[in-house]
């Protein structure tokens, strides 16, 4: 048996929906990132947003997918997964070797990768824009860790906000305070600021 064929139709983003795909490993907080992103843009005034985690039998370290669809102007009516992402946020560089992630990267996909050095473009599909952010390094430096490892979602989303302009640090601060309480907010925001200022083209 092979997987069902998946036709890729007209891009939904032509209707004003922006689609983001997250690639992470179990424990790297990518699923939470997909929801936080929806919260950030919604707070910033987007009309609609949906976070879609793909839930299976995840283990620490296993590859996982999550998606967020956002729109400034219209209601989002689809629940299906993103196969043609406008942005792909990669929490773990090794995932770029795995076909299920590599194959969804399209020429116009903007890639944001957790990496401390520039990527080898020869090993990647032809794309225009790649950004890198050393999210792991920032988390270690700020002791922003869980038992499973660095809490990558905050620095990754902060870098995403910087490169897209969809939201800023103030929006992040407001949502983080509501979501996690004032006490935990300070370190989150410190980490967010560090990432906001250090994301670069790669």
């Amino acid at each position: 048996m092979k997987n069902q064929k998946r036709k890729v139709g007209k891009k939904v983003s032509e209707n004003g929906t922006i689609e983001i795909s997250f690639a992470g490993r179990g424990g790297q907080t990518a699923v939470t990132a997909s929801k936080l992103l929806a919260q950030f843009v919604y707070e910033k005034g987007f009309r609609d947003a949906i976070a879609i985690p793909i839930i299976g039998a995840e283990r620490r370290g296993a590859p996982i997918s999550a998606f967020t669809k956002i729109s400034k102007t219209q209601q989002i009516k689809t629940y299906d997964s993103v196969v043609n992402p406008d942005y792909m946020v990669v929490f773990d560089i090794s995932l770029l070797q795995i076909p299920k992630f590599k194959n969804v990267i399209k020429p116009k996909t903007t890639l944001l990768v957790n990496s401390d050095k520039a990527l080898d473009r020869d090993k990647l599909p032809q794309i225009e824009k790649i950004y890198i952010i050393d999210a792991t390094g920032i988390c270690i430096e700020h002791k922003f860790m869980l038992s499973s490892g660095p809490i990558l979602n905050i620095p990754m989303l902060s870098a995403f906000g910087k490169i897209t302009g969809f939201y800023d640090l103030n929006t992040m601060e407001k949502v983080i305070k509501e979501e996690f309480g004032d006490k935990k907010a300070d370190l989150n925001i410190e980490v967010a600021r560090a990432a906001f200022n250090s994301v670069k083209e790669g």
Partner: peptide
């Protein structure tokens, strides 16, 4: 599809 996805 509804229980674990998030929307406004």
């Amino acid at each position: 599809v509804l229980s674990h996805t998030s929307k406004p």
